[in-house]
Amino acid sequence: MEQGNFTYILECSDGSFYTGWTNNLERRVKAHNAGKGAKYTKSRKPVKLVYFETFLTKQEAMRREWEIKQLSRVEKWKLI
């Protein structure tokens, strides 16, 4: 996968969603599944990538991460 800045949504094994941002999406998803991604996903493995957006800058990706985190579960499903 090409480099960039990504905002992504993972679906955890318990059906919950985790939203984050990274500059290497493939490596980040692998880290989550190895228990090294985030405290939240550590106990909810395996996770699967269900959505992502690409941005030119880190700031744009971080801003979008914040926006998505404000959405309800239903709104996230619609986005996905």
Rank of each mutant, 00 (worst) to 15 (best):
N23L: 11
N33R: 00
L10W: 01
C12R: 04
T22D: 06
N24I: 10
F55L: 05
K45H: 14
E65D: 13
P46G: 09
E53Q: 09
Q70R: 15
E53M: 01
R64M: 11
T54W: 05
T7C: 13
C12E: 06
A34K: 13
E2L: 09
K45L: 14
W77L: 10
P46W: 08
N23W: 12
R44A: 09
Q3K: 15
E65L: 06
G15R: 07
S16P: 04
Q3V: 11
Y18I: 03
T57G: 03
L79G: 07
F17M: 02
P46N: 09
G20M: 02
V29A: 04
T7L: 06
N33S: 08
G37I: 00
I80T: 01
K69H: 14
S72K: 11
L25A: 06
A34P: 10
V29N: 02
R73E: 02
T22F: 03
R44W: 10
K69F: 09
K42C: 13
Q59K: 15
E67Q: 06
Y18W: 08
L25S: 04
L10V: 04
R64Y: 12
N33I: 05
Q70K: 15
Q3I: 10
L25M: 11
Y8E: 03
K58L: 13
V29G: 02
K30W: 12
E60C: 07
W21C: 08
E75D: 14
T22S: 09
K39S: 14
L25V: 05
G20K: 01
I9C: 00
T57P: 02
E26V: 09
K48V: 09
L49S: 04
M1P: 14
T41Q: 02
E26R: 08
V29T: 04
A38K: 08
Y8W: 10
T19L: 04
N23G: 14
T41R: 01
W66H: 12
T57N: 04
V50W: 00
K36C: 13
P46F: 08
E11T: 10
E26H: 12
R27Y: 15
N23P: 11
V50A: 01
K69A: 07
Y18C: 01
T57L: 05
F6V: 03
K48A: 05
K42T: 15
L49V: 03
K30H: 12
L10Q: 03
E2D: 12
Q3S: 14
M62A: 14
K69P: 00
I9S: 00
K30P: 08
I9P: 00
T7S: 11
A31V: 11
G20L: 02
K39C: 11
T57R: 08
L71T: 01
Y8T: 01
Y18F: 11
W21H: 11
T19E: 04
K30Q: 14
N5S: 09
G20Y: 00
F55P: 01
E60F: 06
V29D: 03
Q70W: 13
E75L: 13
E11P: 02
N5W: 03
T19W: 01
T22N: 05
R28E: 04
R28Q: 07
Y40P: 00
K30M: 13
S16I: 06
K42P: 05
R64P: 08
E53T: 03
Y40R: 01
V47Q: 01
E65F: 06
H32I: 06
Q59M: 13
F55I: 04
L25C: 10
G35N: 09
W21S: 08
E11A: 07
